[in-house]
Amino acid sequence: MTAVRPVLLRSLLVWLLLELIAAAQVRHAEETVLASWARAALAPVASTAEWLTTTAVDLREGLRDTSRLAAEVGRLRTELADAEIRIRLLEEDRTALRDALDIAAAMPELDTSSVVARVTWRDLAEGIMEVSAGRLDGVMRDTVVVAPGGVVGRVIRISPHASRVELVTRPTAAVAVRATAGGADALAVGAGDGTLRIDYLPRRSELLRGTELLTSGADGIYPPGLPVARVEAVRESAGAFLEVTATPSAVLADARVVRLLTGWPGRSERP
């Protein structure tokens, strides 16, 4: 049996070789039978290779589409975030415009002679604010700045498109005021801590907590009649004047829009 197997194996190999030789001699159509056999034998390999290639291409396209989709999702998310920011800004704009209208409604005589500007930066500790209107908008040094509640301060530095405002709460700021109730003139000076100190108010003045202080116009900068502060505390002192503390009428920390009184007559008369 051991001798038969090699003989059979050798015979099969020889027969296979002879069959291939015979197949190479027979032609069917345009090719030999051997060629058609080779093609038939290679067809599964070719189709598998084609399938693999197609699958690889599809996979690559799929991955590319996925990454493109991910990028698109990222872009849409960014756009959504932008849109949300824009909506928020628009809401702020709307609020700001409403604030501006409130200012105009509160001080109708100033409506035609003022510029509305957005608050771009503020430092309440330093008592400084920056607004988005400058020299090209008609803003000048000492232009009065007001917010819905009342006076904010005055312009101390100007650039073409922005202005720096000194808030009334700054220690170097001073506004001539008059109490609505008593009618006594005084000077509101910034205390540096977000409040104002009311100086030179005679002891005889009848001043209560909550009394509103308006500009008197005596300083030649602020037009008369604008709300400046409300009395917070009144204390008798040893001197001739009361010690009065007041809080600004305008909410300086939240003001988004201010009005710059560029057409205030008092301003135009100044050099």
Binding site: V7, S11, V14, W15, Q25, V26
Partner: peptide
């Protein structure tokens, strides 16, 4: 393996068959 029969088959192919090779298979088998 019957080499002589294979040669006989190839001779058979040469004279009697349309292709050479099949006779070698048949006669050796």
């Amino acid at each position: 393996f019957p080499v002589a029969a294979l040669a006989l088959g190839l001779g058979w192919d040469l004279l009697l068959e349309p292709v050479i090779g099949t006779g070698g298979i048949a006669w050796s088998a």
